[in-house]
């Protein structure tokens, strides 16, 4: 997804997965994932701070993140947000790139 970098956006993916799993995931996603930064939040601390904990929804009943996307401007202020009501339905890259046009 070089389109994000073209738009001046750093894509950052956050989950409870370990750095090792993220490493495997980012490699399996091939070239498109090069621009993504995968971050590991195994205890869901940041996920909790963002009020995105889905309690006990992990395969072994662990707390995981509910899907959510936030577009921040360079000051770290939220400019666009998507809190889906159905976890199959995520934000589309086009939606995010459209929202990114408003960033300076």
């Amino acid at each position: 997804m070089d389109k994000f970098h073209e738009a001046g956006i750093h894509p950052v993916a956050i989950s409870v997965d370990s750095p090792e799993i993220n490493e495997r995931l980012s490699r399996s996603l091939s070239a498109s994932a090069d621009t993504f930064t995968f971050l590991s939040d195994p205890k869901a601390e940041v996920i909790r701070r963002y009020d995105l904990v889905h309690e006990g929804a992990g395969i072994d009943g662990q707390d995981i993140a509910r899907p959510a996307e936030f577009l921040l401007d360079s000051s770290g202020t939220v400019r666009w947000v998507n809190l889906t009501e159905n976890y199959w339905v995520r934000a589309r890259p086009e939606q995010i790139l459209e929202a990114a046009k408003a960033l300076r």
């Binding site: 001046g8 956006i9 956050i14 577009l71 401007d73 995010i96």
Partner: peptide, 10 residues
Amino acid sequence: KGVLLIFYRG
């Protein structure tokens, strides 16, 4: 211009 935070189930 910004950062996109994507939280996902994992």
